[in-house]
Design a protein around this nucleic acid. Structure first.
Length: 496
RNA sequence: GCGCCGGUAGCUCAGUCGGUAGAGCACCGGACUUUUAAUCCGGGGGUCGCAGGUUCGAUUCCUGCCCGGCGCACCA
């Protein structure tokens, strides 16, 4: 029987037996409900001069054990970092020291002791008492090499966080990036709101939705692809500055830059236009960068990116011409010619792609990858901007921009279209596209048009991809590195 | 969806031109009262991703499949 067990089971059984030992000594770790600690690891580090010789209580996970006969050193990992503790037989007594020897790497303990510096200069808590607070029944990843296998890191992110300090740091930075963005918007008087994720009609972006079903209402619902149309309803309602940070869902491919659920900031400001939105994007991104780097020059891949405003502003069509040598305006509306040009540029072109779609493709494949330093591409053709307002001097173009950093699109914004008649026509055109089989074209949201008919002030709106911004600010090559639980296929046997 | 690369002990990795596998850490036993990748001595631990095929014999060769990474396609 014993020999038929896998080694993993054997380790597990040994740990279970160890746990039983503690229980029989009346020290069941899982019976403990709290532990009063006085200091975090980094506080002891930072306030050593005041704390030296004083008694502190710390708690955390044992990340390493170094036993030397009658003295044992352990690294204790808590939310703030690592602190070394020292267990000595003459301080803990024979029985206490014996008990300490029963601890495993991975166990969570609380310990009380005196702060001192060892002769090698390490700040250490010389413990006089400890309590096992949780038993690790499984071994944690190896202390030196950590956990490397990407698949396990994503599937068992808790192990990744235990083993890799850089991962803990990265997700702390992500949180602070979002905090910085909230702080800026709140200071400017924006109201944070929440709008439906389950939507009867989806819109606000070009994307395929996830579909779900509400049993009681007996209807299909869509997971939102964007909050845009609801946020604009709020502007109609008089909430003049609103924003939402939340999850969007798009039923599309998964790769280094795309996860099916991702986090977007959308913000709308009444009586503002896209120029003000550009300033706001600069302000939000620089605030986030300063929050996590205290500077605006940051490393991304092989580059140093300088986020200092003002960022380069360049017309989209000019950028396209520079990157491809093609003047897209010269054959505007000629879908056939556009597809031909697209093929010549080496783009993947579908038989019914339109001029706008080829242009968009050229932008993504030929222009964006070159935009390493922060750049606003401005003024987009109306064909690919169904929710943006026309430029007064050139009604075939819209007041729209996208911001690129490190070759990634990080923001998309425009002066919002508030003319309900124009908006109805453009949504109707989208609807016709859908009927021709374009699954990503907008469906027709009647109530949104009705809302605009009550009058929306001139408004600027922006969207920032939080995951991508985090990629840039944490020098991460993949979006999965900045999402705690990225979408993966289920493991074999773990499916539904 | 297509192409390339990968999956060997709990973790990090070697390795087998086909003869059923090793190291370090972790774990178990022993020595050691200031270590920090502690050290030293001894020990246990593997359906070599899964399923077929070829073969006297497959972890190794072949085919299919699963999962992951990268690139392409789709998209933000």
């Amino acid at each position: 029987m014993e020999s038929s067990q896998s080694p993993e089971e054997q380790l597990y059984k040994a740990r279970l037996a160890n746990l039983e030992n503690w229980r029989q000594k009346g020290k069941d770790p899982f019976a403990i409900t709290r532990y009063e600690r006085t200091h975090l690891a980094n506080e002891i580090e930072e306030s050593f001069t005041e704390l030296e010789g004083k008694v502190v209580r710390v708690a955390g996970r044992i990340s390493a054990l170094r036993a030397h006969g009658k003295v044992t050193f352990a690294d204790l990992l808590d939310g703030s970092g690592k602190i070394q503790i020292m267990a000595r037989v003459n301080v803990l007594t024979e029985s206490g020291y014996e008990l300490f020897g029963q601890l495993d790497v991975g166990d969570i303990i609380g310990a009380e002791g005196t702060v001192l510096k060892t002769r090698t200069g390490e700040i250490t808590v010389d413990i006089n008492d400890f309590t096992l607070l949780s038993k690790a029944l499984r071994p944690i990843p190896e202390k030196f090499h950590g956990l490397k296998e990407t698949e396990v890191r994503y599937r068992k992110r808790y192990l990744d966080l235990i083993a890799n300090a850089s991962v803990r740091h990265l997700f702390t930075m992500r949180s602070r990036i979002i905090q910085a963005i909230r702080r800026v918007l709140d200071q400017k008087g924006f109201l944070e709101v929440e709008t439906p994720i389950l939507q009867p009609v989806y819109g606000g972006a070009l994307a395929k939705p996830f579909i779900t079903y509400h049993n009681a209402l007996q209807m299909s619902l869509y997971l939102r692809i964007a909050p845009e149309l609801y946020l604009k309803r709020l502007v109609v309602g008089g909430l003049e500055k609103v924003y939402e940070i939340g999850r969007n869902f798009r039923n599309e491919g998964v790769d280094a830059r795309h996860n099916p659920e991702f986090t977007m900031l959308e913000a709308y400001e009444a009586y503002a236009d896209y120029h003000q939105m550009m300033s706001l994007v600069e302000e939000l991104v620089t605030a986030a960068a300063e929050e996590v780097h205290q500077r605006l020059q940051i490393r991304y891949g092989d580059w140093v990116v300088d986020l200092t405003p003002p960022w380069t502003r360049k017309s989209l069509l000019q950028a396209l011409q520079e990157a491809t040598g093609v003047d897209f305006l010269s054959f505007r509306g000629d879908d056939e010619k556009a597809r031909e040009v697209g093929k010549q540029l080496g783009l993947s072109v579908e038989p019914n792609d339109t001029w706008g779609r080829v242009l968009d493709e050229a932008l993504k494949k030929k222009v964006a990858p070159q935009l390493i330093q922060p750049t606003f591409l401005i003024d987009y053709p109306v064909e690919i901007s169904p929710l943006a307002k026309r430029k007064p001097i050139d009604p075939e173009m819209t007041e729209r921009f996208q911001a690129f950093i490190g070759g990634l699109e990080v923001a998309n914004a425009f002066t919002e279209l508030n003319d309900p008649i124009d908006q109805r026509e453009r949504l109707a055109a989208q609807q016709r596209q859908r009927e021709k089989g374009d699954e990503e074209a907008h469906p027709y949201d009647w109530d949104f048009i009705t809302a605009l008919e009550y009058g929306m002030p001139p408004t600027g709106g922006l969207g920032i991809g939080i995951d991508r911004l985090t990629m840039i600010l944490t020098n991460s090559p993949s979006i999965r590195e900045v999402i705690l639980f990225p979408q993966l296929r289920p493991e074999e046997g773990q499916g539904v």
